[in-house]
């Protein structure tokens, strides 16, 4: 019996959900800064996917005759100390950085959301233990915790993804925890309980979907943060390793050339990091404005 009830609510839900989604989509389209953010993200995503087709150079292709060549028509971003074309490398690096961000945020969400949901729904000793563990993780400055985890795992791209992912867990747990605490008092959850739905069903089918708005906002802002932290880890030698085309590695490689005036080695990869983070921040802020209008007045 409870099953058929669930199905009926489930069939009724999409219509409402779709109209709300369309409404949100329209609001988002009207948010100019948010659209700028989306445009920047699309630029880096498409550029990094199609660079192999568009660029006459390979990301690791060296040219002995063009070492440290400044930006020119042949090499729009110049070349590095091995004569590799920087434009190709910057866009190729975008692919790795965006994947790193996606996987790291995926790890944070996949662990943080269930933990926060369980802590909020179960409450009591279990809830309090989970949230105290999250507090401990929050006691570390984020880059420092990422460094400690990456150092323990050994340097590398996947270590960086895991490290950045772990650092993001408490934020998602806290957001989901807060949402679950307030949602579990609501009538529709009580109704679910009265119908005899299991806690797992109530949590996954009724509470988490209703808590999605702040989670989505956090995930968008978290992408920018994850890209930044992963690049920082590569920069200090704990993330991707040379000769990988990765933004942090490229800046680290080009660092020695800044005092002799070869600015382009670090400028363009840095610009890529800064603009992509800006893109995610703008889009995240816009999503927050659209999904949670209460925050718009003060933030």
């Amino acid at each position: 019996m409870p099953k058929s009830r669930t199905r009926s609510t489930a069939t009724a839900a999409p219509a409402g959900t779709r109209s709300t989604t369309v409404g949100f989509g329209r609001l988002l389209l009207r948010n100019k800064l948010g659209m700028v953010g989306l445009g920047v993200i699309a630029f880096w995503t498409l550029g990094s996917i199609f660079i192999g087709v568009l660029s006459p150079y390979g990301a690791s292709e060296t040219a002995a005759g063009a070492l440290l060549a400044p930006p020119s028509l042949d090499h729009l971003f110049g070349t590095d100390n091995f004569g590799r074309d920087l434009l190709t490398r910057v866009f190729a690096g975008g692919q790795l950085s965006l994947w790193t961000g996606l996987i790291a945020v995926g790890i944070s969400m996949a662990i943080g959301v269930p933990l926060g949901g369980i802590a909020g729904y179960a409450g009591g000793a279990l809830g309090s233990v989970i949230m105290r563990v999250m507090d401990v993780l929050l006691a570390f400055p984020s880059l420092v915790l990422a460094m400690a985890v990456a150092a323990a795992l050994g340097p590398g791209t996947s270590s960086a993804m895991i490290a950045v992912g772990i650092v993001g867990i408490p934020e998602f747990a806290r957001i989901t925890y807060g949402q679950t605490i307030s949602l579990k008092q609501r009538e529709f959850v009580e109704a679910g309980r009265a119908l005899g739905l299991s806690s797992a069903t109530i949590l996954t089918r009724h509470i988490v979907p209703n808590a999605l708005a702040p989670i989505v906002v956090r995930a968008t802002l978290g992408m920018g943060y994850a890209i930044l932290t992963a690049a920082a880890l590569s920069f200090i030698g704990l993330g991707a390793q040379p000769p990988t085309a990765e933004w942090g590695v490229m800046i680290s490689d080009g660092r020695g050339y800044i005092i002799s005036g070869e600015w382009w080695l670090t400028f363009f990869p840095g610009l890529a990091i800064a603009t992509s983070i800006l893109g995610f921040n703008l889009l995240g802020d816009a999503l927050r404005d659209v999904l949670d209008p209460r925050l718009r007045t003060t933030a």
Binding site: T266, F267, G270, I277
Partner: peptide, 21 residues
């Protein structure tokens, strides 16, 4: 907004290039 998006390691290197070099 810009301050929150700037990677420190990039900003530091830009500052060295601009104000030192």
């Amino acid at each position: 907004l810009v301050g929150a998006s700037m990677p420190l390691f990039w900003l530091g290197l830009l500052a060295i290039y601009l104000f030192y070099f």
